[in-house]
């Protein structure tokens, strides 16, 4: 009897795990992640605080506007030293506009975002469905899915990502980001899940730890975000930079 019960339990557990994997696919999880962390269009106000090795920190405030998969624009509002700077991304093209020069220079995706621990592509290019192939692997935490994402193209900042997503609400919990050498470069913690509107909830805070220099980290806080907008296509032209 005990043996039968044990076998039954094993079978139930196996079936449960299979269901857990079967009720959602990696592609669906990636799609949900993109919808939460990079909705199709939004305008937002964000703060990024960069914590340095020497114990000092710098906080940058910015406004952001996104349209579709390929268009993103950022206006820096503080501190005064960077106020007026803008970043524009159109597909594989990214520019940094410097107000004192009145010119836009091209940015590489791998550059760090304002010298912090996020890469430009972490902020400007949240489209894991397009950039990564994903598969669900066994999670150490039964309350979360664990995704292994392998880069599809050379433009991504990371070669491999491990991403944990809550089973209860599909919110991202944490991530680990690896380079082509297999070395862990960054790790992220997603927290402070907030309902910004009836149709939109996301983690308000992302802590990105630098695994190469452990004393370094950056925190991105989304203060406001609206997703029910229709951005004008003209806002995503290089010729619009510097025009407010």
């Amino acid at each position: 009897m005990n043996r039968i019960s044990f076998c039954l339990l094993l079978a139930m557990n196996y079936t449960f795990n299979q269901n857990a994997y079967a009720d959602v696919t990696a592609a669906e999880l990636l799609e949900k992640y993109d919808k939460i962390m990079g909705p199709a269009q939004f305008e937002s106000e964000m703060d990024m605080t960069s914590n340095r090795e020497d114990g000092t920190s710098r906080t940058y405030s910015m406004k952001a506007l996104k349209s579709g998969d390929d268009k993103f624009r950022i206006w820096f509002t503080s501190p005064s030293a960077v106020s007026g700077q803008e970043i524009l991304r159109i597909g594989d093209n990214s520019w940094l506009y410097l107000p004192n020069l009145k010119r836009a220079s091209r940015l590489a995706n791998r550059d760090s975002f304002q010298g912090g621990d996020f890469n430009n592509s972490d902020i400007l290019r949240v489209n894991y469905t397009k950039d990564f192939d994903g598969k669900i692997i066994t999670s150490e935490d039964p309350s979360s899915y664990k995704l292994e994402l392998k880069s599809k193209n050379k433009d991504t900042s990371y070669d491999l990502i491990h991403l944990w997503i809550a089973k209860s609400n599909f919110m991202p919990l944490k991530g680990e980001y690896f380079g082509t050498s297999g070395k862990k470069l960054r790790s992220a913690e997603f927290s402070d899940v907030k309902e910004y509107s009836k149709s939109y909830t996301r983690p308000a805070k992302v802590l990105m730890k630098n695994e190469i220099v452990p004393a370094r980290s950056s925190i991105l806080v989304v203060k406001k975000i609206k997703i029910d907008i229709t951005p004008a296509p003209q806002k995503f032209l290089q010729t619009d930079l510097g025009k407010g």
């Binding site: 020069l101 009145k102 296509p233 003209q234 025009k243 407010g244």
Partner: peptide
């Protein structure tokens, strides 16, 4: 800068251009 329509933008004044 005044945008009477999304496609049209008018600029008047003293400005740096590159």
């Amino acid at each position: 800068v005044y945008e009477p329509l999304p496609s049209w933008s008018l600029t008047f004044g003293r400005k740096r251009i590159t």
